[in-house]
């Protein structure tokens, strides 16, 4: 489904990703864990076209999407719920969600059942339905996170990128976010998940990659990584 081969990325002259290769098979949840500054978010940004990779290749469903602009990558079927949520503050909750389906609403013909998908997102996040007409900027952090995820789902994506969906949320809401990720997994949605809560991420994921200083340090089935003494010591000690 999503294939990343020998990806390099740099901010200015400083290379921050070195030779990253990873794969997200159809219907699977793959997680990328690692400490702050390891390059998790940069990897996500390079995949969705927010930054241009300086080397390597990325393909979605066999189609080469390397170096395309983010809007073309979205149109190819990749949705990215970015770090920091990035909701459209002055637009209503409903408008934010409809914009998630933008490629499906343009050029006069609707592709798929957008209204039905909107109803399904509201079902998944009842809180958003209550706030449907409210400006997104006035939502709480947790609600904004739900909105960012719901907005990404509105694309009906082939692959969903979730970057730090639990960041800055109260423990109760963190559990809620992971419950929803598990629910989405049950629906067969292919996901690449970046999380600071490595234990919870490995719990829901099928496969994991550990990123250290911009390189893949190790990878394996999620269960196996969870039991790996080195991974345990470095990433699973403090959180949860």
């Amino acid at each position: 489904m999503l294939q990343i081969q020998n990806l390099h990325a740099a901010y200015g002259k400083v290379e921050v990703l070195h030779d990253i290769s990873l794969e997200v098979p159809k219907g699977k949840v793959v997680t990328l864990i690692g400490s702050n500054g390891a390059g998790k978010t940069t990897t996500m940004r390079a995949v969705s076209g927010m930054i241009k990779p300086s080397g390597g290749s990325i393909s979605l469903n066999g189609k080469n999407i390397t170096g395309l602009t983010s809007n073309k990558i979205a149109r190819a079927g990749l949705a990215h719920s970015p770090e920091g949520r990035r909701v459209f503050a002055t637009l209503s909750v409903t408008d934010n969600l409809l914009l998630g389906a933008f490629p499906r609403l343009t050029f006069g013909r609707e592709r798929g059942d957008v209204q039905g998908d909107l109803a399904r997102v509201f079902e998944l996040f009842p809180r958003l339905k209550e706030r449907a007409g409210q400006q997104a900027g006035t939502l709480s952090g947790g609600e904004q996170q739900m909105l960012a995820m719901g907005r990404a789902l509105m694309l009906n994506p082939e692959v969903l990128l979730l970057d730090e969906p639990s960041m800055g949320l109260a423990p109760l809401l963190v559990n809620e976010v992971f419950r929803i990720i598990a629910e989405l997994k049950g629906r067969g949605i292919t996901m690449l998940l970046v999380e600071q809560f490595a234990a919870a991420a490995l719990e829901v994921a099928d496969y994991g990659y550990v990123l250290e200083n911009g390189r893949i340090a190790c990878h394996g089935p999620a269960q196996q990584l969870k039991d790996d003494p080195a991974v345990k010591a470095a990433y699973l000690g403090a959180s949860h």
Partner: peptide
């Protein structure tokens, strides 16, 4: 209109608008 909303979204956050499939250029 959805195009008008895309304009407002671009004004709010150009990068995030790009992720929605909006050609912000």
């Amino acid at each position: 209109s959805i195009y008008g909303k895309a304009v407002v979204a671009t004004s709010n956050d150009r990068d995030a608008a790009g992720l929605m499939g909006i050609n912000t250029g």
